[in-house]
Amino acid sequence: MRIPPRVAQTVARVVLGAATFFTVAVLIFIIGHVLVKGIPVLSFRFLFSNPEDMGRAGGIFPTLVGSVLLPAVALVFAVPLGIGTAVFLTEYTRESKITAAIRFGADCLAGIPSIIFGLFGFIFFVTVLRMGWCILSGGLTLAMMVLPTIIRTTEEAIRAVPYAYREVSFSLGATRWRTVWRVVLPNALPGIVTGIILSLGRSIGETAAVIFTAGSSLRMPSSLFDSVRTMSVHFYILAREGISSENAYGTAAVLVLAVLMVNGISYWLMHQFMKRFS
């Protein structure tokens, strides 16, 4: 039996439209739910004062600081390492079994549940290296976790830079390094930034890997060797222990808004950058 084209068209439109609607609806529902429940809790005092009574009262300032510092430490380590690896794999080596193996390894690493990273971080940084629960242990663990993402997205971005650009650069007497620095990386930047944003988002929201390595101290950290509690860990503990669902929602709302803000700002920055050369 043949389906008339007009009917097929209508069916396709309805089915695909429904899929889109469903996706968007889930997103709006989750974000909306968190914001509706959380925003009433928000205030300047909530953001910038210390928690009291395990978080039952008071604010979330130390966890806010933790959620800024931990991803920052992670990116400080992961971004140069990841971009360096990606440049090496794409520009400085020829395709071989070894590069394929490295790529496969990176993909596997990306798929490992974060709690395994947490366990490794706990054993390696916290106990073997005797760093204890601290910002540095947590940041390094997060760095390992997001490294594959940064490597792979940077690699794809570098590959997308037209080969002709490299040829031109070489033909004008540039060395490989100058070509990478002046032509390849600037053109791959939007893709690289996307990878960094993804990683940033992932490390801001990460809970399992962090609770094992940075601990859950509610005190304000004074150095990278102090334990800290991030917002996501705070939220987890508040909700899990039934301490205060009100403050848990407040924390979640800050978390969601922070991630939205990071995305917004990065895309704006990228847009500004792209506008200069198009």
């Binding site: 037209p162 002709a164 650009y165 040829e167 031109v168 650069s169 033909s171 032509v183 600037p186 053109n187 050369f277 198009s278």
Partner: peptide, 8 residues
């Protein structure tokens, strides 16, 4: 080159 490749 054959195709004009202005660097961006």
């Amino acid at each position: 080159f054959a195709l004009p490749v202005a660097l961006p």
